[in-house]
């Protein structure tokens, strides 16, 4: 699966619906930009614990 996830075609096919999902989710939820900042900040900080 990790190998497949590295393929640009697979990533393109996945990215477009995900980006649209983000657009729709944001419009539906009506959140503020700072909420996006805090959420992304917390998640990426945790993910970076796996950095070599």
């Amino acid at each position: 699966m990790g190998h497949l996830a590295g393929k640009p075609l697979f990533r393109t096919a996945l990215a477009l619906p995900l980006a649209m999902l983000g657009v729709l989710a944001w419009q539906g939820a009506g959140l503020e930009p700072w909420a996006l900042l805090v959420t992304a900040a917390l998640i990426v900080g945790l993910a970076q614990q796996t950095l070599p």
Partner: peptide
């Protein structure tokens, strides 16, 4: 995938 969803959301903003 979370990054792409978040970038889509940013576009909506």
């Amino acid at each position: 995938p979370l990054a792409v969803i978040a970038l889509g959301a940013l576009f909506a903003v």
